[in-house]
Amino acid sequence: MWLSEIEPGSKVKITDITKVTEVVRRRLLDMGIMEGTVVCMKRLLPFGGPCALEASGQWVGIRRQEAGLIQVEAV
Rank of each mutant, 00 (worst) to 15 (best):
M1S: 14
W2R: 13
W2M: 12
W2L: 12
L3T: 14
L3M: 07
S4Q: 08
S4N: 06
I6A: 10
E7G: 01
E7I: 06
P8K: 11
G9R: 00
G9H: 02
S10T: 08
S10M: 09
K11T: 08
K11Q: 07
V12Q: 01
K13Q: 07
K13N: 00
I14K: 03
I14F: 02
D16M: 01
D16R: 07
I17Y: 04
I17W: 04
I17R: 02
I17A: 01
T18R: 10
T18E: 02
K19H: 11
K19S: 08
K19C: 00
V20H: 03
V20R: 09
T21Q: 03
T21R: 07
T21M: 04
E22P: 01
V23Q: 10
R25K: 12
R25C: 02
R25L: 13
R25I: 03
R26I: 01
R27F: 05
L29K: 12
L29W: 07
L29V: 06
D30H: 11
D30Q: 05
D30C: 00
M31D: 02
M31V: 06
G32D: 00
G32E: 01
G32H: 00
I33K: 04
I33E: 06
I33Q: 06
M34W: 04
M34C: 01
M34P: 00
E35V: 10
E35W: 00
E35A: 10
E35N: 07
G36C: 06
G36T: 07
G36K: 04
G36P: 05
T37P: 00
T37H: 00
T37C: 01
T37Q: 03
V38K: 09
V38N: 03
V38L: 12
V39L: 10
M41V: 15
K42G: 06
R43P: 00
R43Y: 14
R43M: 12
L44N: 11
L45G: 09
P46R: 08
P46F: 07
F47W: 13
F47E: 15
G48R: 12
P50C: 14
P50F: 12
C51K: 11
A52L: 15
A52E: 15
L53M: 08
L53C: 08
L53I: 13
A55F: 15
S56H: 15
G57A: 11
G57E: 03
Q58W: 07
V60Q: 15
V60S: 09
V60K: 13
V60G: 05
I62D: 14
I62L: 15
R64I: 09
Q65R: 14
Q65A: 12
E66R: 04
A67Y: 08
G68E: 13
L69K: 15
L69Q: 14
L69N: 11
I70P: 08
I70D: 10
I70S: 03
I70W: 13
Q71F: 10
Q71T: 04
Q71A: 13
V72I: 13
E73M: 05
A74D: 07
A74L: 11
V75C: 10
